[in-house]
Design a protein around this nucleic acid. Sequence first.
DNA 1: GTGAAAGCGCTAACAG
DNA 2: CTGTTAGCGCTTTCAC
Lengths: 367, 367
Amino acid sequence: MADKANGNGKGNVERPARLIDVARRAKVSRATAARALGGYGFVGEQTRKRVAAAARELNYSTNVVARSMRAGTTQTIGVVVADISNSFFSYATRAIIDTAAQAGYQTLVLNTDDDLAKEIDAVRLLIEKRVDGLIVVPSSATSFDHLVLNDDLAKPLVLLDRSVIGLGVASACTDDRGGAKAAIELFLERGHVRIALLLATAAAHGAETSQPEGVVSTVRERAAGALEALAANGAPEPIIRYSRSDLEASRDAALELLRQRPRPTAILATNEEMALGVLAACGELGLTIGKEVSLISFDDSPWAKVIAPAMSVIKRPVYELGSAAVTALIRQIKGHGKSGRIELPTQLIDRMSVADVHKQQVKRPAI
Amino acid sequence: MADKANGNGKGNVERPARLIDVARRAKVSRATAARALGGYGFVGEQTRKRVAAAARELNYSTNVVARSMRAGTTQTIGVVVADISNSFFSYATRAIIDTAAQAGYQTLVLNTDDDLAKEIDAVRLLIEKRVDGLIVVPSSATSFDHLVLNDDLAKPLVLLDRSVIGLGVASACTDDRGGAKAAIELFLERGHVRIALLLATAAAHGAETSQPEGVVSTVRERAAGALEALAANGAPEPIIRYSRSDLEASRDAALELLRQRPRPTAILATNEEMALGVLAACGELGLTIGKEVSLISFDDSPWAKVIAPAMSVIKRPVYELGSAAVTALIRQIKGHGKSGRIELPTQLIDRMSVADVHKQQVKRPAI
DNA sequence: GTGAAAGCGCTAACAG
DNA sequence: CTGTTAGCGCTTTCAC
């Protein structure tokens, strides 16, 4: 049906058809073809159909690169994230991709492993690719020169999940402080006194530790919230342990925590990996979650509600978070002004992993 | 330090500096500036330094869009995946992004929810964006016209995780058949006779069911492998149940399975969601995994080894899979020829979720 | 309604 | 070693 020759009778090289090929075939000018295809301006009904037909016959596909060059906009956003295989980030990224797509933007995803050098490269690359805006999960709360681009290159930017001190940039976060508070209060209500905090440091995928401080704002907020709640209730200081965000490290950290005497009876884990570490450690030590050891973790996941006992969590609106970030970003891109800090609420879901110490005495496994 | 005016003394609009601005400032031609910056061709040491300095002063950032247009290559690949928040895909995507980045390619990620229409749009979009190659997880084993592009638009393509019948295209898969076989053989060895298969259909995120057949090649292979192993050992036919890939659906399906009389004693779950469904159902029914119900699931995950009892799984080399797909793709992009079907081995990891029926009699919970 | 033509910013082929 | 120049494919005034 369609003869492949695109303009020049030869048709041996088979380059994709260009607008001009379509125009020639429809016997109109490039301008008219563009208008017809783009559905703007005034074009005769006849002409429009001829152009459409020609395009179909030639298997025309708009060269968006050329369009971007002309238009100065790429309809592409960049997402710079620590590790997309991490469940929180993958879910947030899902939301970002969806929301962006709906608004006509595609998404370029880059991983940094929370490595500042990689983050800097990633941002430079995206700027070179002339993305229309960036969503960044900043690896460092203090180094951000690479984010405040010289104005002529500046791109709309929204920080995700973490914020950065002293940088007037839009961000989409959750109320981590409040979440931690709620968790601690539940522990306290249930009579726990020896409470431990298992705090995640950089979500390094490899073994790098180039993180200047290692603890991102999110985790700091969680720790602060916990401390506040403890202090407000006159409870003793918690036992604190840090761990890299991988199972091995977090298990070791949890093991240390649980070997202390007197042993902490409740642990707040700042993310899924930390929680998994506690589970692993309890398994090794023969300790039962929800009995000897109580546990609350940040972030809900499918497995959390299904294991025995179901794990109590501080759930964050992850999808909404990603979505909100994109919405804010696109507002900026469109010049509708930039939003400040967006903070979404967290929600404590109490399942079965927090024991009530008051009733603990009686609780021997029934014969 | 750097004066922002880019060429024209005015400097009020602050457009990003272009190559020509750098050239002017360094008092050379564009060609020379390009050579100096690009580090190719012959450029005098002096000149090179002057250009580099000028670029720095003007805060020059190469406009990659223009370069792409000129070069006809975007250094970008597209990944079309059912749902990046799914742990398998997110991990594979992680591998893809990493491997591609190492080779100098960035990655555009699109979700399809296993919806063919979205997949078609996604591919069209990526072609329009002139990506250098695509990695696609095809949602349908039979509709793939959108993948066999008319030659002039054809792009290097590698299928991931699933294959498509009668399409001569490169693919990177795992030995799902073998994995299923191994799992069934373990069940059989341990004396299980009433074996059930919980098979996942489309990984729909929403509620769509536009999947023509609903069961992708991967799952079909797993079912086939299981059936083969059963037949080869003269074991009875398995009980088969299908389920959408979400927790609710899979729990319901597992519930149905477990309410059959006689109840199946062993279940092979074709993915994480199915396994979670079994866990949920067992919880509701008060059945103990590794005792009354044995379970093996495809794909390992951090939680699988940490829950009690630890779950036996068929582990697939997910990272390697993504990596292999990119390697094959880049080979194609570079014109080094296209690879056929890559098939990576699976590995059965037996943990604690498969009971030995022979010893079952005695196994009453010890007092 | 339609066409002619000017660029977007870069690179590479060709001169010097 | 360095400069000149011709496009890559598209959109969009501005004429007609």
